[in-house]
Design a protein around this nucleic acid. Structure first.
Lengths: 340, 340
DNA sequence: CATTGGCACTCTGACCGACGGAGTGCCAGA
DNA sequence: TCTGGCACTCCGTCGGTCAGAGTGCCAATG
């Protein structure tokens, strides 16, 4: 009984504080939410909640604000992700459908996510780990210079320009090209890397160095290091909206956004599709970002995540709405990538 | 005589204000700069400068700060671009040399520019206008789906996935491929677009629609619209450093940085290499950015600019240093692109 | 005629104390 | 177990004062 009401009070505090940005007092609470009790009763409940560490008061005789622990409780126990409206779903899908290529998909994803949540959106490029080699093209720029283009099943194109140790005539190049294609096309990138290694071994002495150089470049291009390092950030302008006491944390925030490695760590743990990771305040590894929360999830065809995406905002954020948006966008991106 | 001193006073005011961020008074001025005169004299000069609209005082009996006009005068007449130190030059070149491909060059450029100037750096992708077609590859993904890869002399790779109106067997594809290559490779993108149009005309009825679809996709990929739309921004964290009265303009600034179209307009007028465009405060087209200045220049091999780069910062910025950095980076990027 | 010292004036920013308001904690009563 | 009442605390604001910095102007000087 009382326990139920206490949780209702906690929920009400979180909701009010999120929308008003001001500590919420007992009187305002009973007015805005139809709890059937008096302010005094609420005050007792508040005292109990504070005892448990779920809320706190910034100063004696100010209203209460949720603590990180309070938000955590709210997210875990007091809320369901609210479904997106039909209009929102339509907006997401039409906006994402219009994309030309992978770059464009990512760009648009970041935009729509930032737009929906009014927070900062982060999208990681899909990892190549599970992708296969669609095509390899060797383009002779000059007798000793070669442009290597690697096309993967995700639609990602990698290119490398290399210097050959010696000139290579077009005949050799074309036979070399078909051998490489034969070895690598259709294979996963790990298998392709192995096949290219084997191919180097099998090659006669004359062309060995050429093949070795090319294979090295290809393998390097395939290694997903550079790839998964890439993240795109959007909605930075929303930082300004965070406003108020957030001024101090705007600097570390901006710095973090520049450091893609940091962003990757923030997204990092969200590896599986269809489950949201919510990190609240100081739960994260960066104390500079202790007043921010992260909502992230994996995306990718099926249940395998090939990348992560999410948002970053102040701990005082609309969790149900943001979680819904992140999940919805992740799903749409997954289906889009599946089609491509 | 007096005129010379007045300009010296203006210069001193600009320099002091830039470094201290505070209105500078007559007394402080004679102490920090060895002008051989008394504060009273300087006050007279200040009154004259204010008369001319070059400086202003925020409030009666505060020090003076330069107006936009004052900065303009300073930039045009009172300063030379100071050369970069050897260490700085080395830092730029080694950092940029390490780039793998075009994307990487741009990324690194933005970083080094932001680092050197401690401002926000903007780099536009090179325009395709002057580039030529190096190679075109048609990759059959399924009988009716084709991946088109366009490789340009700038090292830029564009890709498009298209649906064919009907299936296409590998024989036709390969002949089609060689005809397209023959028509387009080595041509400038405008010529290539024309050649592809002509090719469509010459094609027999059976394959006409295929060629038309492919040509359309290629031409669309060549059109430099999407390409030159792309800009990369870095050093956003420096926004926080601007600090102080800049708080109000941080929001429009962040918004502008999200809107790449706006950034392009900011860079836009800097079309020729080897000449710096400096836009100070309200001189720009955006009144929201009236307290910021832009320093931009074109870059590209020879004297032809294939793209622009520059920085954005508060009007109160170190113009000589920033101008030197922008110019130096543009030159290095040009040479790098020339090599590639 | 340019320069200088002196002087009165103005404005800002910091500091201080008072005060109203919002909110709490606690207690006694229903 | 809930509620009304009451005393208390603390914040934010407002008005006033004050020192400091800087100016403008004027008369004197080389």
């Amino acid at each position: 009984m009382q326990e139920d009401r206490r949780l209702a009070v906690l929920r009400a505090i979180v909701e009010d504080y999120v929308s008003t940005r001001e500590p919420v007092g007992s009187k305002a609470l009973v007015e805005r939410h139809r709890l059937g009790v008096s302010p005094a009763t609420v005050r007792n409940d508040m005292a109990a909640l504070e005892e448990e560490g779920l809320i706190a008061q910034p100063h004696t005789s100010a209203g209460r604000i949720p603590t990180d622990k309070g938000y955590r409780f709210f997210v875990d126990r007091l809320t369901q992700i609210k479904p997106m409206s039909a209009a929102e779903r339509r907006a997401i899908s039409t906006f994402l459908e219009g994309a030309h290529d992978l770059d464009d998909v990512i760009q648009r994803t970041v935009r729509v996510l930032a737009q929906l949540t009014q927070q900062i959106a982060i999208v990681q490029y899909p990892s190549l780990a599970r992708s296969t080699v669609r095509h390899i093209e060797l383009v002779s720029l000059s007798p000793s210079r070669l442009l290597i283009v690697l096309i993967l099943s995700t639609g990602r194109v990698e290119q490398r320009m290399i210097e050959l140790p010696a000139d290579l005539d077009t005949g050799s190049l074309s036979s070399l090209r078909s051998r490489i294609l034969h070895a690598a096309v259709g294979e996963s990138i790990t298998d392709a890397a192995n096949a290219l290694g084997a191919l180097t071994e099998q090659t006669d002495h004359v062309n060995r160095t050429h093949v070795a150089v090319i294979a090295t470049a290809l393998v390097e291009a395939m290694s997903n290091e550079r790839q998964t390092e890439r993240v795109v950030v959007g909605g930075t302008a929303n930082l300004a909206r965070f406003g108020d006491g957030f001024d101090q944390s705007i600097k570390p925030m901006l710095e973090a956004l520049e450091e893609h490695v940091v962003l990757l760590r923030l997204l990092g743990e969200a590896t599986s599709s269809d489950s949201l990771t919510v990190r609240i305040g100081a739960e994260g590894p960066y104390q500079e970002l202790s007043s921010t929360s992260v909502i992230a999830t994996g995306y990718g065809p099926g249940d395998d995540a090939v990348g992560s995406l999410g948002i970053v905002g102040p701990t005082r954020m609309d969790y149900p709405g943001s979680m819904a948006a992140v999940r919805a966008v992740a799903r749409y991106v997954s289906t889009i990538l599946d089609q491509a």
